[in-house]
Every structure is written in C-alpha cells, then in structure tokens.
C-alpha cells in the first residue's frame, strides 16, 4: 500500500460548519473529493444548497442543514439530523467564524454584546459542535476534530481584541480536546494566513500579499488538501497542534497584519 492510500476517506462522515462559502466550501469539496460523505452547515440556506450541489456534481454525498453554531440547541438538532441520515460521525471541521460587529473597535468602544457575539461566533460555536459530536465520534471508534483558527490565534494586533481572544481561545480549547480524548480523537488546528476568499477589497487591504514573505495571498483551494491531511490516517500521531498555512508570515513575526513589517524583507518587490 502506498502512503498516499492513507488519504482515502471513503466511508467517513464529515461535518463542516461554515460550509456555505469560501474556505468552508473549499474544505467540504476537498473532503468529498477524498471520499467522505458530507454534512454541510451554515446559517444561509441558499449558499449551503450551492455547496451541496457542487459536492453532488463531483459524485459525493451531501446533507445540508442550516444551523447557527452560537445556539447550542440548533447545533444539537443539526448533529442529531446528521446521525439520522448517516448513522455515524467521524470528522468534525469547526470552520464557522469570522468578523462580527465590534471588531476593529478600540477597547473602550466595544459593547458587551459585541464582545459576546464575537466570542460566541469564533469560539463557543466550536465548543457547542464538539460537545454534541464527540459522543458520536467516540461511538464510531474515534475520529478527527479540525478547528480553524488564524494567525491571530498566535499573535495579536492593535485594536483587535475580540477576534484574537476568540481564536487564541480556540487554540487552547483544541489542546484540551487533544489531552482529553487522545488517542481516540485527534484534535488539531488549521491556521490560515491572509486568505481574501475572493474578496477584492480584502486583497487590496492586504496589498495583494506584498508584505507576506512569499509575496502573495492564499487561495481557499490551498486549504483543501490540508483539511484532508488532518482528517486522514497520515496524521494519526498528530494531536493538539496547528498547521499554519501563511506564506511564511508567522515565521518572521510580521504578518498577518497586511502592513509593512517592522523589519523590511530582503527583497521588497
């Protein structure tokens, strides 16, 4: 058997949150491409249906369930529906998250609700999904949890309180999962650097990657193979750890800010 055969996910059921677009959609398609059956969740139905169609067009199986990860009863219902459809869950990808009101505000301007919503969206949602799915993953004989954090989970930025706190919380939540459920469940993190998700304004804001060591921004499709890797038998001893895909940003400590680094790059092209 070649080492590459371990990438096969046939017979596995993967739940992907935030699967309606961008990174979540790219990861769902990659998991389906590797043979997994998909449970796609997000709040916006139209986008979920699109992702489901794309999975089915590629010959995969997809169940879509609209769900708000910040609401634990909505999450519990979603996981139960996944179980009634497929009978088991093997892989959980906690990808839902992103910008909420209050982000980028100075500390004194952040309202209580803005803080709570930001943490609920980017941290508590992953707890809700993990809590609901883990008993099923254990019942299936073990599996994988993949949490999507960010460079902001390891480094901070000026006036970025909510997102950095939530994403750093997700890093340590993952380590606690790893400590608790090893060796039956492996819990690891994906930390994307600057990925504009096709948004031209974001690309421009990040100067098209000019200040990223590799000189470019990331493409959502580049995260697909990474999620398959972490969901596969190739990473059976990897636990509680992050793979950072950021074009060298964190290695030098000046990204992902999108602005000129304190120390100029050797070749500022």
């Amino acid at each position: 058997m070649s080492v590459l055969d371990k990438l096969k996910l046939n017979g596995k059921v993967a739940v992907v949150t935030g699967a309606g677009r961008g990174l979540g959609r790219a990861m769902a398609l990659a998991l389906a491409g590797a043979g997994a059956d998909l449970v796609l969740t997000a709040r916006t139905e139209a986008q979920l249906m699109e992702t489901a169609d794309l999975v089915r067009d590629g010959g995969g199986a997809a169940l879509w369930i609209s769900c708000d990860v910040t609401d634990s009863s909505s999450v519990n219902t979603m996981i139960e529906s996944a179980i009634s459809e497929y009978g088991h869950i093997d892989i959980l990808v906690n990808n839902a998250g992103g910008a909420t009101a209050g982000m980028g505000k100075t500390l004194t301007d952040i309202a209580d609700d803005e803080w709570r919503v930001g943490l609920d969206t980017n941290l508590t949602g992953a707890m809700h999904c993990s809590r609901a799915a883990i008993p099923h993953i254990l019942e299936a004989g073990g599996g994988k949890i993949i949490n999507v954090t960010s460079g902001f989970g390891f480094r901070a930025a000026r006036d970025n309180f909510i997102y950095t706190s939530a994403k750093a919380g997700l890093v340590n939540f993952t380590r606690a999962l790893a400590m608790t459920y090893a060796p039956d469940i492996q819990a690891n993190l994906i930390a994307p650097g600057l990925f504009p998700h096709g948004n031209a304004a974001m690309s421009e804001f990040w100067r098209n990657g000019k200040y990223t060591p590799m000189g470019r921004l990331g493409e959502d499709e580049e995260l697909g193979p990474l999620v398959v890797l972490l969901a596969s038998g190739l990473t059976s001893y990897m636990n509680g750890q992050a793979i950072v895909l950021d074009g060298g940003g964190l290695a030098g400590g000046h990204a992902p800010t999108g602005f000129a680094p304190l120390v100029p790059l050797p070749e500022d092209s």
């Binding site: 590459l4 380590r175 190739l234 750890q241 964190l250 030098g252």
Partner: peptide, 27 residues
C-alpha cells in the same frame, strides 16, 4: 506522512513552519 505533505506542491503556501507530530506531548 507529514513529510509527504510538506514535500508535495499541495503545501505550496506553507513555509517557515514547524509541524509538530508528537501525540499531544507539547499541549
């Protein structure tokens, strides 16, 4: 397994990183 990923072009955007494969020992 991780070496195959890092060697392959699928990780073209990954550089300057340490990928730990330690079963959670560092957590």
């Amino acid at each position: 397994g991780i070496a195959v990923y890092l060697a392959s072009d699928v990780s073209a955007y990954l550089t300057g990183q340490v990928v730990w494969v330690e079963g959670g020992a560092l957590s």
